[in-house]
C-alpha cells in the first residue's frame, strides 16, 4: 500500500488530462497538455518522488504516442489511460522506460479503448435528456445532463481503474518483470524502439500529401542521423526552408494562372493511381 498516494495522483490526473474532462483551459489544457505522456512523465515522477525516471519514461512513451489522433470522436489509442496507467505502473515497478512503453501501449489499446468506447456509446442516454431539456428551454437541465452527470461518470471511469491498477498491479508487474525469460525482456526492449515508427507513420500520413514531399522527410532524417544535429536547430532550419518554400510558391502562383497548374496536377495524380 506504499503506493497509495502516487496511485491517487495518477487516477486524478487520468481524469484531469482526459479529452472530456473539466479543465480551466479546456481541451487545450487537458487532452493536449496534461494528457500528453511527456507531461504525464513529469507529474507521475513527482508523485513517485523520482522526477528523472518519470520523465525518461514519459519521453519514451511520448515517442510512440507522438501522433495520437482524435478525429470525429474516434481515437486510435486512449492516450490518457496510456499515459497515467502505463507510466504509473512502470514507475510503481521497475521504472524501465521500455517497460513503460509496452505497458502504455497495452493499457491504451485495450483497457483504455474499452472504457473510452463504453462511454462514447453509453452517453447517448444523457444526450437525449439534454435534448429534452433544450426543447423545454431549460438551461439547468442541460447543465445537469451535459455537465454534471457525465462528469461524475467520467471521473469514476477514469479514476477508479487507474487508481486500482497502480495500487494492485505493482506486485503483478514486478513478479512478471523479475521472472520473465531473457528473450521476453529483450523483445520488450526492441518493441520500445520500434513502436515509435507507428506514431511517426501516422503523422506522415497526415502531413505528406504528395510523394514528392518525401524529400523534406528525408532532409529532416538526414539532418539528425548524419548531421547529428539536435531537434531545436533543426526546427529553425525547417522554419527557414518553409519560408523559402512559401516565397517560391508565391512567385509561382503569381507567374502562372491558377487554372492551368490545377489541371496539370489533376492529370498527374490520375496517372499516379495505377
Amino acid at each position: 500500500m506504499s503506493n497509495f498516494f502516487p496511485a491517487l495522483i495518477c487516477g486524478l490526473f487520468c481524469y484531469l488530462g482526459a479529452i472530456e474532462a473539466f479543465n480551466p483551459v479546456g481541451t487545450t489544457g487537458s487532452f493536449y497538455c496534461l494528457g500528453r505522456p511527456l507531461v504525464a512523465g513529469l507529474i507521475v515522477g513527482l508523485a513517485f518522488g523520482d522526477v528523472t525516471n518519470g520523465i525518461l519514461c514519459g519521453v519514451a512513451v511520448q515517442a510512440v504516442f507522438i501522433a495520437n489522433l482524435s478525429t470525429g470522436g474516434a481515437t486510435n489509442s486512449e492516450i490518457t489511460y496510456a499515459s497515467y496507467g502505463g507510466i504509473g505502473l512502470a514507475m510503481a515497478s521497475t521504472k524501465d522506460p521500455a517497460l513503460a512503453v509496452t505497458l502504455a501501449v497495452l493499457v491504451g489499446n485495450t483497457f483504455g479503448l474499452i472504457f473510452y468506447n463504453l462511454r462514447m456509446a453509453f452517453y447517448s442516454v444523457f444526450n437525449n435528456k439534454a435534448l429534452e431539456a433544450a426543447e423545454k428551454g431549460d438551461g439547468h437541465g442541460i447543465t445537469i445532463w451535459h455537465m454534471i452527470v457525465p462528469q461524475i461518470c467520467t471521473f469514476l471511469l477514469r479514476f477508479v481503474p487507474t487508481f486500482a491498477a497502480i495500487l494492485l498491479g505493482e506486485g503483478l508487474v514486478n513478479t512478471l518483470a523479475a521472472n520473465a525469460p531473457e528473450l521476453i525482456t529483450h523483445i520488450i526492449g526492441v518493441l520500445g524502439g520500434v513502436l515509435p515508427a507507428l506514431g511517426i507513420g501516422m503523422l506522415m500520413n497526415i502531413v505528406i500529401k504528395d510523394k514528392i514531399q518525401l524529400v523534406f522527410f528525408f532532409f529532416g532524417f538526414v539532418l539528425l542521423a548524419f548531421g547529428k544535429l539536435d531537434t531545436i536547430p533543426v526546427v529553425f532550419i525547417a522554419a527557414v526552408v518553409a519560408y523559402i518554400y512559401y516565397l517560391a510558391t508565391s512567385k509561382a502562383a503569381a507567374a502562372a494562372p491558377a487554372g492551368s497548374t490545377q489541371s496539370a496536377d489533376a492529370a498527374y495524380e490520375d496517372a499516379d493511381l495505377f
Binding site: 507522438i66 506522415m204 529532416g220 532524417f221 539528425l224 533543426v234 532550419i237 525547417a238 518553409a242
Partner: peptide
C-alpha cells in the same frame, strides 16, 4: 514534414 523526419531519426 521535416520535423517528422527528425522524429523518425
Amino acid at each position: 514534414i521535416i520535423v517528422v523526419g527528425t522524429l523518425a531519426a
